[in-house]
Design a protein around this nucleic acid. Sequence first.
DNA 1: GTGAAAGCGCTAACAG
DNA 2: CTGTTAGCGCTTTCAC
Lengths: 342, 342
Amino acid sequence: MSQPGAVGRRPTLEAVAALAGVGRGTVSRVINGSPSVSERARAAVESAIAELGYVPNRAARSLVTSRTDSIALVIPEPETRLFAEPYFSDIIRGVSGVLADTDMQLLLTLIRTSHERQRLAQYLTAHRVDGVLMVSVHEDDPLPDLLDRIEMPAVLSGRRSDLESVSYVDADNVAGARSAVRHLLRRGCRAIATVAGPPDMYVARCRLDGYRQALAEEGLEHSDDLVATGDFTEDSGRAAMRALLERRPDVDGVFAASDVMAAGALLVLRESGRSVPDDVALVGFEDSVVARHTDPPLTSVRQPTEEMGRTMARLLLDEISEPGRLRRQVVLPTELVRRQSA
Amino acid sequence: MSQPGAVGRRPTLEAVAALAGVGRGTVSRVINGSPSVSERARAAVESAIAELGYVPNRAARSLVTSRTDSIALVIPEPETRLFAEPYFSDIIRGVSGVLADTDMQLLLTLIRTSHERQRLAQYLTAHRVDGVLMVSVHEDDPLPDLLDRIEMPAVLSGRRSDLESVSYVDADNVAGARSAVRHLLRRGCRAIATVAGPPDMYVARCRLDGYRQALAEEGLEHSDDLVATGDFTEDSGRAAMRALLERRPDVDGVFAASDVMAAGALLVLRESGRSVPDDVALVGFEDSVVARHTDPPLTSVRQPTEEMGRTMARLLLDEISEPGRLRRQVVLPTELVRRQSA
DNA sequence: GTGAAAGCGCTAACAG
DNA sequence: CTGTTAGCGCTTTCAC
């Protein structure tokens, strides 16, 4: 530690063996927690390790085990802005928390260009990580299939469809949407509209399903002119809300498939002279921090993002250590957070 | 690529050499772009590489070169919430963008507990990365000194003091604060207060300096009761603003050292019946996304966060490839973003 | 310019 | 239980 010329060679397993008066094999066994080591030997090795401040050389280990002790978190860049801020940091926080107890490392991979995709594919094919975590995967993304083909353990956040073939962790979007609409029903809303997401995204379909289910439960109208579709942007939320108001001026409740779209809807409602939530109650699915900063802050369906990160990491570690060809699937509950005063 | 039993061994340099009809050394030279290879040999090797889909084994290379081709981005966890969302993702975006052109990998390291700190220190001491990027380092953080001692290339975002000994990239906090206050002056404010940050943080001192400089330039009062101190939290911003209003009911402009504190101040101003920005103009330093979501959105001093990330990465790569013992220091300009209608 | 040979530090298989 | 041995795949002298 306090060596003056600390630059030089760091101690090797060999040095530890010499100091402990044992063979290299024994040192290796101690490090890897093999049970077949005598107490005496283990003690000697451990104190030698401590004395030398020995840390195993990962490259050398990796070379022989062909494990890398690292996993990659892959984030498609375009998403970064839309499904905004707290989402990714929470995921990272969760993942990182689980990994901290391991000696696995987390590699962060932002994918911006198709060139970078390419490089990632090559990287993965070369098995330079032991597993992959993927956030917001699109239905047409070829990566999951690649992962499957090269037998690389992987866990997705969200699924691409009902029949997702890769392990995943998802929020219960259907139930979340249902609870949002039930909330509106409890408030006494009768003409409940929804600003839905793009129908080619599974998550959007789920949220729309939840909306429909909640209305059906109540035997309520379930008319097409109460559904407007956006693309998760604020502008599209605005446009959808305008369309809705035109078709159904009597609307008194809106469930938006994302808080960003909800924010857009909120502005339009205001412009139209309606007060929120008194004239029209508004609930959004909370994908970003926006719900907390609108005025008034929106009641919204919150996803357990950090927990999703933790769960993803755990599933992946499982899958790495026990590569049974079984798919692991977890759907986590959401929570309705009341923020509007009323 | 389309091999059926793609599971098996991936091709090695040896295989490439065999196919190209050259020795392993030559293949290695080609891969590492050595000039002393004949055109003929190079072509043969390259086509062999393509045919086999060869990708070098990083562990093996690392073992012999004792470089890891990866750098760590270290983020102290507590910060994650406070200096909030876009900051870190922007930094990451910037860093990752620069690294994409390299074959360096980015390791993400969140530091939560002292135990994790410990592990990181050990990790770094074992030289398991080629360099380190550190975000929001505290003055009493022992890590920079450790890095220095083990001669690990490092770049900080922000500096700990005027005499920062480690390379860094910082925003020009002094100039930023100055521009904020000048803006208030131009608006005609005469009693300009500041909600300052904790005096033991260099960044806070810089912003306070800038505030003072701008007032001094104008020959304006520079009284202590126009300065209230917070700790960058919204609550502290509220408290500071209350204190300010009590001491100086005539205040007509406020510069807050962070947008989060500005948001707190905004609420207090409202409660006190003052309208912003008409009665009291408010400008904050934009550390988070909050400035954009207050009502009205705050005019604020924006930092070039992504650019900071890019610059950090570049400096670090420089430092790694050319470990001259010279400190690299960059101070990036800020920008005043007018968001208030007036 | 290029092949051959010598390891980098570690694990795993094999005798003892 | 433990020491010894043989590589893992690559870079890098060092002769040719």
